Simulated assay, not measured.
Amino acid sequence: MGRWVRTNKGFLVLLLCFGLFRTAIADWNPIPSGSMRPNLLEGDVVFVNRLAYNLKVPLTDVVLARTGEPKRGDVVTFSSPDDGTRLIKRLVALPGDVVEMRHEVLFINGEAARYDAAQTLREKVATGLTVDATRLTERVQGSERRVQWLPGIAARNSFAPIVVPEGEYLMLGDNRDDSADSRYFGFVPRQLLIGRALGVMVSADIQGHWMPRFERFGQKL
């Protein structure tokens, strides 16, 4: 065993450096579900900057130093406060914000989001189930993104005003009626933030025989 280690020392060092790079500096994250539609699709693989917010001890949530401040509108990867699952959502509200939702309409600090550029289409939400969907541009508190509503789908599309606690954040999926997010598991503490997603590295159509979607390669978020 010792001889094998000596013989392959260079390869083992390379593996160690690669592991440290992925767990502390940068990473990639496959998109397994439609919770971020229409901006991220199942089969996308996004590039994640792990140093965007915190420098952590590799493989832990122990923060050594803060490297940047999360911003409203960031697409963030984080560990679910519910069960530790890695998730990717939109950071919608910051510490101290008063946030509310009334029948899909988002309010932040008393400002109602503006919605325009509506588009209607059919969206597949499960095997054999296709529903009407509405896509709109949502603008509020200086940030904007395309969001999707699924009329007729039971979801938590209303909640009373609540103040985001210090050191925590409210996350929502862009696909508002098909996303398990802060409406279900609560606020996300800063130490659970993994990094900021910057763009799509590669993409494959998982429902179309895994054919590459070249038009999505390199797409920024």
Rank of each mutant, 00 (worst) to 15 (best):
V13F: 12
C17W: 09
G19Y: 10
L20Q: 07
R22C: 05
I25M: 03
I25H: 02
W28Q: 01
S33W: 10
N39M: 09
L41Q: 14
G43T: 01
V45K: 01
A52I: 00
A52H: 05
V57L: 15
V62S: 09
T77M: 11
P81M: 05
D83I: 05
L87H: 08
K89V: 04
V92P: 09
L94Q: 13
D97H: 02
R102T: 04
H103S: 12
F107S: 10
I108P: 04
N109I: 02
Y115I: 03
A118Q: 08
A118S: 13
T120H: 11
K124S: 14
A126P: 03
T127D: 15
L129N: 14
V131I: 13
A133N: 07
T134Q: 11
E138V: 08
V140L: 13
S143C: 05
S158V: 11
F159M: 07
P161T: 04
E166C: 03
E168S: 10
Y169T: 10
Y169A: 08
L170S: 02
G173R: 06
G173S: 08
D174K: 07
R176Y: 10
D178Y: 14
A180W: 11
Y184D: 08
G186K: 03
F187H: 07
R190M: 00
L192Y: 10
L193I: 04
G195A: 08
R196N: 10
M201P: 00
V202S: 01
A204C: 06
W210F: 15
F214T: 14
R216G: 00
K220G: 02
